[in-house]
Nucleic acid binder design. Structure first.
Length: 468
RNA sequence: GGCCCCAUCGUCUAGUGGUCUAGGACAUCGGCCUCUCACGCCGGUAACGCGGGUUCGAACCCCGCUGGGGUCACCA
């Protein structure tokens, strides 16, 4: 088998969204699996919409996910001369022709056709023009599509796909301002870059026959094609910006780990038996385009969250602490140099689904004051708990060195003396210390909070009740 | 509307003619564990869109229908 050369060719008109990221991922995985080359080419020939910032966003997104490429980034806009050269070549070989119809004229004729409910395709008015009949006007270059026959290919994912040539109009290759159009440049570039397998979204299927025709006109080898199923929203339509967090970097900002997204995206439309969790190496080892599903897949945030939780738990407390620092900073907590951080993180790691959630779950460990959750306050910051809190303060104060084993006996004993389960004491205590009814184990929480802060908070709870 | 693609639990999927009374995962619902939450463990609900063929036998093959999606630019 010849070395596969695949490419990801995004247009820099926005951020790298999950659909694009998955296309990039599948190309990357394929190249790595089969020892091929993965090329990045920026299709920036839509000068109206392409931006420098978008190019950077694509690069950043891929870097964050760890999808590295072997060649590029190439910029399509810098190859215009080459595209024009090839267009000129096709003019001499007679595969294309100059068309002098203006947009207005075409719009007029199109309207006529549609009035008669006929399907409009360019009517080939200029197809038969001899050079001596060429007016001195701007023109576009159109492809001389075969009038009969079929154009087909064996799609790597879908099997044989075919189009009747009569369904394909004489499409434009070069605009009247001399700039080449997508369907043409993409072929020239793929030919020049020796791309021999095109893995891209299903939304490109209808472009494929046109491109194959161009390959043939150019006398170039037609590459293989594999059209990926689309990522769908809950309404089962193509996932778009309207559907929420679509930008890859948006996921980072929401506290997702790159590997969680990487794993999730790989499993959306592809599978390997019943396996759900894959390391990057496993993915490279197993991935093949022939195992990709044909049907579109709905993006499922719940499952991504589950995976993210899985990978967060996988991190060592130290690693996880490093990851959460920026999210704590966003909450106004500077924990970079806090030696307690790994231990604090460890206490919450398995309880959260994102780093953002982890940061907020860590909040109560910081500062002297606790922010009381209204419900917790209403339930536990009441006079009936005053005696309990006072007794708790006395007994906990008596413990010199805070460890789980030094704290557990006095609190448990108190509960026993009151003829209650530990929960009856632990919950009010938890509320006083954390401001909420949910936290890691109560003794662990006290140890992490430290003696001083714990006592201070208990005292504060007592004062609050008295003040009411 | 034309053309093209697609069709297994709510969702992601396994399944490639018999081992399917259809498996796994997320979600969901019970239960256990338990100081709360989470984790973990045990268990439950839940799917082959419909109709014809082919075959001794179809989730798997063929046709039709229905449904969904994509695409129809001098955008990429």
């Amino acid at each position: 088998m010849t070395q596969p050369r695949v490419r990801f060719a995004p247009s820099p008109t926005g951020y790298l969204h999950i659909g694009g990221a998955r296309t990039a991922l599948f190309n990357y995985l394929y190249a790595r699996r089969f020892g091929g080359k993965f090329i990045l080419r920026i299709e920036d020939t839509d000068y109206e919409r392409s931006t420098e910032a978008s190019v950077q966003a694509i690069l950043d997104g891929m870097a964050w996910l760890g999808i590295d490429f072997d060649e590029g980034p190439y910029f399509q806009s810098r190859r215009i001369d080459r595209h024009k050269e090839m267009a000129a070549k096709l003019l001499t070989t007679g595969h294309v022709y100059k068309c002098f119809c203006t947009k207005e004229e075409i719009a007029g004729r199109k309207a006529e056709w549609e009035k008669e409910k006929k399907v409009w395709r360019y009517d080939r008015k200029c197809r038969g023009l001899r050079p001596d009949q060429h007016p001195d006007k701007p023109y576009v270059i159109r492809f001389k599509t075969p009038l009969t026959g079929m154009t087909a290919w064996d799609d790597g994912i879908r099997g044989r796909v075919s189009f009747a040539n009569e369904e394909i109009e004489d499409f434009v290759l070069v605009r009247s301002d001399g700039t080449p159009v997508y369907n043409f440049v993409v072929v020239v570039d793929d030919v020049d870059m020796d791309v021999n397998l095109v893995i891209r979204g299903e939304d490109h299927i209808s472009n494929t026959p046109k491109q194959i025709l161009i390959y043939e006109a150019l006398g170039a080898a037609v590459p293989g094609f594999a059209h990926l199923p689309l990522i769908l929203n809950n309404a089962r339509q193509k996932y778009s910006k309207r559907d929420g967090a679509v930008s890859v970097m948006g996921f980072r900002d929401e506290g997702f780990l790159p590997h969680a997204l990487f794993n999730y995206l790989a499993r959306l439309g592809w599978s390997h038996g019943d396996q759900e969790i894959f390391s990057r190496e496993e993915l490279i080892q197993y991935f093949d385009v022939k195992d990709v599903n044909k049907a579109g897949g709905v993006f499922n945030m719940e499952k991504l969250l589950w995976l993210n939780n899985h990978y967060i738990r996988q991190l060592s407390p130290e690693e996880c602490a490093r990851e959460v620092v920026p999210f704590l900073a966003a909450l106004g907590i500077d924990a970079v140099d806090d030696p307690r951080l790994p231990a604090l993180v460890k206490s919450q790691q398995e309880r959260v689904k994102t780093l953002k959630e982890l940061a907020s779950s860590l909040q109560f460990y910081f500062g002297d004051e606790v922010a009381f959750d209204p419900k917790a306050a209403a339930k536990f910051l009441t006079p009936e708990y005053l005696p309990l809190y006072e007794e708790l303060l006395r007994r906990v104060e008596a413990v010199g060195d805070f460890t789980e084993s030094s704290l557990e006996p006095p609190v448990k004993t108190l509960a026993e003396e009151r003829g209650e389960g530990l929960g009856k004491v632990a919950q009010p205590l938890r509320a006083a210390l954390t401001g909420t009814t949910v936290s890691p184990g109560i003794f662990e929480t006290m140890v992490l909070l430290g003696r001083e802060r714990s006592l201070k908070r208990l005292g504060a709870a007592i004062r609050k009740i008295r003040g009411q």
